[in-house]
């Protein structure tokens, strides 16, 4: 029988993968994609906790829904900023935007 522990552990694994991607990716688009994985792991954790416990106003599912909304908004703004970075710096890697390095 599949339990809440299965889903929470899977969310933790997915979150670990996303964290690894955020810290290791050199291309900023890939960093944003890893952030998407992180947000999806969080949404899945909320939805699974809500599904296995007694539902009170379906708060977990609604949280997951709002995480998806915020993720979409964050990604569109992030990509627009990266487009400007590409126009001014010619690339969207972490090396290209290192002027503020001391």
């Amino acid at each position: 029988m599949v339990t809440l522990g299965h889903f929470l552990l899977f969310s933790g694994l997915l979150m670990a993968v996303g964290l690894y991607g955020v810290l290791t990716r050199r291309n900023l688009i890939a960093v944003l994609m890893s952030v998407e994985i992180l947000l999806n792991a969080a949404a899945l954790a909320f939805a699974s906790a809500a599904a296995f416990r007694e539902p009170h106003l379906f708060a977990g599912q609604i949280f997951a829904l709002f995480i998806i909304v915020v993720a979409a908004a964050e990604l569109s703004i992030g990509f627009a900023i990266l487009l400007n970075v590409y126009r001014t710096h010619g690339a969207v890697t972490d090396d290209a935007i290192s002027e503020m390095r001391g």
Binding site: T3, L4, G5, L9, G12, A16, F52
Partner: peptide, 20 residues
């Protein structure tokens, strides 16, 4: 570190899914 934080997740044995 993330996996250490989620270590306690294994202990949840609720198995009844409430469909929405």
């Amino acid at each position: 570190a993330a996996l250490v934080f989620f270590k306690g997740a294994v202990g949840h044995h609720d198995g009844q899914i409430n469909p929405v």
